[in-house]
Design a protein around this nucleic acid. Structure first.
Length: 560
RNA sequence: GCCCUUGUAGUUCAACGGACAGAACGGCUCCCUUCUAAGGAGUAGAUCUAGGUUCGAUUCCUAGCAGGGGCACCA
């Protein structure tokens, strides 16, 4: 293709080959080529497509895969692919099994993904869900495509909040309570913050405790450690249930020893200066300065973030550092990236804020811990599972209770994850139970159901030993093969844009086709040749569904 | 006031500058003697407004309108 483009004077041509809905042909969008060539612009789309077609037909390789090429629409070329060529593709896909789409050669590129980052002493809420789920899916997909991935949980385990907590804790009667829960800490925090509003004494007290903690006061450190452990144990429970795994838990406190150095270096380097007795890095175009040390000598999360960049660059030598954080922090990251570059810590191109919209309450209000509006993740997960359980009771009353519970867990959690992963939107999300826990239509259970149906068929037959791909000649079968061959490209699209929803969309489409396939073509009852070939196809679809869902962090079930 | 972001069927979401803007839910009609009806078939229904760039704009640019977020010592 590229050679033809060059021959026609197109220079560096770009191709977009997309499988069409219609039976068995590809269409190449020639207009994409035109825009990259001055020469091509002189010719109207259709005329150009005609010319391009003639050149293509002269090529041997083209003749091998296609019966007919036609021009259509605004400069499209429709390729009628030969069935043998499509069927040959399938053999390749089938052979790869669950490795289909996996990158064969290591790219040796490294990506650090910063995600989840809940705050110590606050239960995880639905707001953390997006970062956690999207981050983990990206991690899985990058790894599958040959990258070295480093998942890092940058815990909010340091800062002013602890002053508040410690002050509140010392005043309370919780000190002697044995099994202190994360909810207790959360209540302490909310209560104290509310009282602090009208009481500057309490505020001073909190500030005092923060300082003491930062100076290494023994008692405060001890309390802090206790809070840390309670919280982390709680988080790990949630992560286990959600199937989330980190390579590192490098929280804010980890960077504590580096903070002073960051600020002195910045001042020495000239990037930062003192303003109103705070150390700031001035920004251009009307942006407020980036404060890296407060006038009371305390450091901020901006300082920590700079230290984290420095550390990550040195330790992991990454090609990319991805921050999966909501877009409420856009300004912070713009400032951070600029500052990092000025301090010579990292090039801006290597830092990327993969932002997403906030989760808002139904009235489109921000869900803030301080205001006490808080929907706990635990609560959401339980509700999801319980809804799935209700459906399971209705649909599969004969199953054992234990199996029903397992199905409910897998489906409930899957639905929750899929809801986040199937949408790209930067716009804010209104929190609604019904939407969040959708169990029908474009949802995780739909995909899990298609998988279970395929497995149910496969269970009733021996594993495919040999098959003749020529039997895969119906419309739906051809369409599915074309779709399966697209899988690696879809994964590339995800890694290129950091958008896992492309994969979710693809899998949904594949599941739709799978549902059509086993409805239209009998597998087990078919004549021998057809039966084996269709079993092979079912096997390949199931494998790809499982791989894809696995990458999204969604589990499959053998039966539901 | 400045900056960022979003505006697509009744609702929730898709659409790498390209063919007739796709789904799902909800509405209306159908399909369980045939590999699981958490399924399938059909039907009605949408690009905020006004300009611009382009052979071609939901997509890019400008202005406006509307929602959300942010704007020096919170994270």
């Amino acid at each position: 293709m590229e050679k033809v483009a060059q021959k026609l004077g197109l220079g560096k041509a770009m191709f977009n080959i997309v499988p069409e809905e219609k039976f068995g042909h590809y269409s190449a969008n020639l207009m994409t080529i035109r825009t990259s060539s001055v020469e091509a612009r002189k010719t109207p789309p259709n005329e150009f497509a005609e010319k391009f077609k003639d050149e293509l037909l002269k090529l041997k390789a083209v003749k091998e895969i296609t019966d007919k090429i036609e021009t259509a629409g605004a400069g499209y070329l429709n390729f009628w692919l030969k069935p043998e060529s499509i069927q040959k593709d399938f053999v390749e896909i089938f052979k790869n099994k669950d490795k289909w789409g996996k990158f064969k050669i290591k790219e040796r590129k490294t990506i650090v993904i910063d995600y989840s980052h809940p705050n110590i002493a606050k239960p995880m809420s639905v707001a953390h869900l997006r970062s956690t789920i999207i981050g983990q899916a990206l991690c899985n997909i990058f790894k599958f495509r040959g990258w070295r991935t480093i998942g890092d949980n940058h815990l909010g385990d340091w800062g002013k909040q602890f002053g508040i907590l410690i002050a509140a804790f010392k005043q309370s009667d919780l000190k002697n309570k044995k099994d202190l829960k994360i909810e207790d800490l959360m209540n302490l925090y909310v209560d104290y913050t509310a009282r602090m509003k009208n009481n500057s004494e309490l505020e001073d007290k909190a500030r005092e405790e923060t300082k003491k903690l930062q100076r290494g006061d023994k008692e405060n450190i001890k309390i802090w450690k206790r809070f840390y452990k309670i919280s982390l144990d709680e988080f790990k429970k949630v992560y286990k249930r959600l199937d989330i795994k980190f390579d590192y838990y490098l929280g804010e406190s980890f960077y504590k020893p580096m903070l002073e150095g960051i600020v002195t270096d910045a001042l020495k380097n000239g990037a930062a200066r003192i303003s109103d007795s705070a150390a700031v890095i001035p920004m251009d175009n009307n942006q407020p300065p980036f404060i890296i040390r407060k006038s009371d000598e305390a450091y901020l999360y901006s300082t920590t973030d700079l230290a984290a960049i420095k550390y990550r660059m040195k330790k992991f030598k990454p090609d990319m550092v991805l921050y999966v954080v909501d877009n409420g922090q856009s300004l912070h990251f713009e400032q951070l990236f600029k500052s990092a570059e000025r301090l010579g810590l990292a090039k801006k191109e290597k830092l990327f804020h993969a932002k997403f919209g906030l989760v808002l309450s139904e009235g489109l209000k921000k869900l803030s811990t301080r205001a006490g509006r808080h929907i706990s993740l635990q609560e959401v997960m339980d509700e999801a599972v319980s809804r799935a359980r209700n459906v399971a009771e209705k649909k599969q009353p004969d199953l054992e209770s234990k199996e029903k519970q397992k199905i409910a867990e897998t489906i409930g959690i899957g639905a929750l994850k899929y809801n986040d992963l199937s949408q790209n939107r930067m716009s804010d999300i209104a929190f609604k139970w019904e939407k969040m826990l959708n169990l029908e239509g474009n949802s995780a259970p739909y995909l899990q159901y298609a998988y279970a149906r395929l497995k149910s068929i496969l269970r009733k037959a021996k594993p495919v030993a040999r098959f003749d791909q020529k039997f895969l000649n119906s419309e739906i079968e051809t369409r599915i093969i074309l779709l399966l061959s697209e899988f690696p490209d879809v994964l590339d699209l995800v890694t290129k844009n950091y958008l896992p929803h492309y994969l979710a969309e693809y899998l949904y489409k594949l599941a739709q086709e799978a549902n059509l396939f086993y409805q239209k073509e009998k597998v087990l009852a078919a004549s021998k040749g057809e039966r084996e070939a269709r079993l092979a196809l079912a096997q390949a679809i199931a494998a790809t569904l499982k791989t894809g869902l696995g990458l999204l962090g969604i589990k499959t079930l053998e039966r539901i």
